[in-house]
Design a protein around this nucleic acid. Sequence first.
DNA 1: GTCTGACCGGATTGCTAGTCTGGTCAGATG
DNA 2: CATCTGACCAGACTAGCAATCCGGTCAGAC
Lengths: 197, 197
Amino acid sequence: MSVRQDDARERLLDAATQRFRRFGTRHTSVESITTAAGTGKGSLYLHYQSKEELYLATVRHAVDGFLEAAATAMHPDQPAPARLRSLVEVAIAHYERDDLLAAPFLDDRELLDDHAATLARQLQRERVTDLIRTTLIDGQRAGTIRAGLDPAVAAAVLFEIGWAIVRSHLTRELTIPLGDALRTLNDIVGHGTGSGH
Amino acid sequence: MSVRQDDARERLLDAATQRFRRFGTRHTSVESITTAAGTGKGSLYLHYQSKEELYLATVRHAVDGFLEAAATAMHPDQPAPARLRSLVEVAIAHYERDDLLAAPFLDDRELLDDHAATLARQLQRERVTDLIRTTLIDGQRAGTIRAGLDPAVAAAVLFEIGWAIVRSHLTRELTIPLGDALRTLNDIVGHGTGSGH
DNA sequence: GTCTGACCGGATTGCTAGTCTGGTCAGATG
DNA sequence: CATCTGACCAGACTAGCAATCCGGTCAGAC
């Protein structure tokens, strides 16, 4: 594969990302993407099997960006609960700004059809849950996370928990200030609700 | 208001509940409800201001049933964290069985229009959050819940947390067995993830 | 060998006419 | 006279069809 081809692949991804973000997949035609990328329509299919695969590639790319930012924010010298808190904060910041990431969770059928949304959700769930799981394992090794927790199960549950707050914030269904919610979420996830008596 | 009128009101609520549950609000006509209830169409408007208000009344009634079952399951001699666990379990059982309760959270636009769903969600959120809040206050009084938590904020967060598990289970997006998720959720909500070191 | 855009069929949209339905109210009922 | 009703209305929704659009292909240009 030539340098020229690599270029085209990247230009297609960029053009697609921009358009999907602004108009959603439904209102973005393949042709408008290839035109913006300066290639013929058929060339898209030299790089991606379908429009949907291209969409998933843009999501994957955006998730990469988000996870990179999260990795930066989650300083390895912090205890694991603090790292999880940073993850939620970075998630809020990213998802608020990036429609491409938020859309699959807000099911707006004008922007995104059900099938693509499901796949994108699955992709994000997997990637983020994975990060949480490794963080938990690190924490257990470092002694800041209880050894009794099964990292895989706890990661899945923590993803749903964290996402619940992000989602209810994005949909404006959260009835309390976000700051309060995050602080309390952090408190509960760190120490539980019990008094320990 | 006569006994006859009270009867009609109840019959209308019952007929509506049955039909909304089976067909959703969109595919249930006012006339089919009044026919089933044995009243004229206009009589509905002697008892309810609109079809939507009637729908909300059926939701309120179903939530009452759910909360009653929850109250029975949440034995007052249990510590508060155990009572919260019972609440989630009863919620799963009810929401799995009762489409009327689950529908507003699954946004199926075939069954329920957006506005009604939003109002129904709000109603359920308020009622359940309220129950959680009083449970937390009880627990703080009894010493089984940490005094440091703001009951109102913690209740809102716990609602979102609990609902996240219920929802992801109902939508089959939960990637782990429900039993594992509930056990771990309970564990985290009770004791947190931290080791206490 | 690499790339393209004219082309295909199926999905979507726009349109119109006809039907349905939430809500009203003049009048029937007892 | 209080209670209740169903014919009626306006506007929303549906069916059906023609016209358009668009994802994906492939014969041929370069």
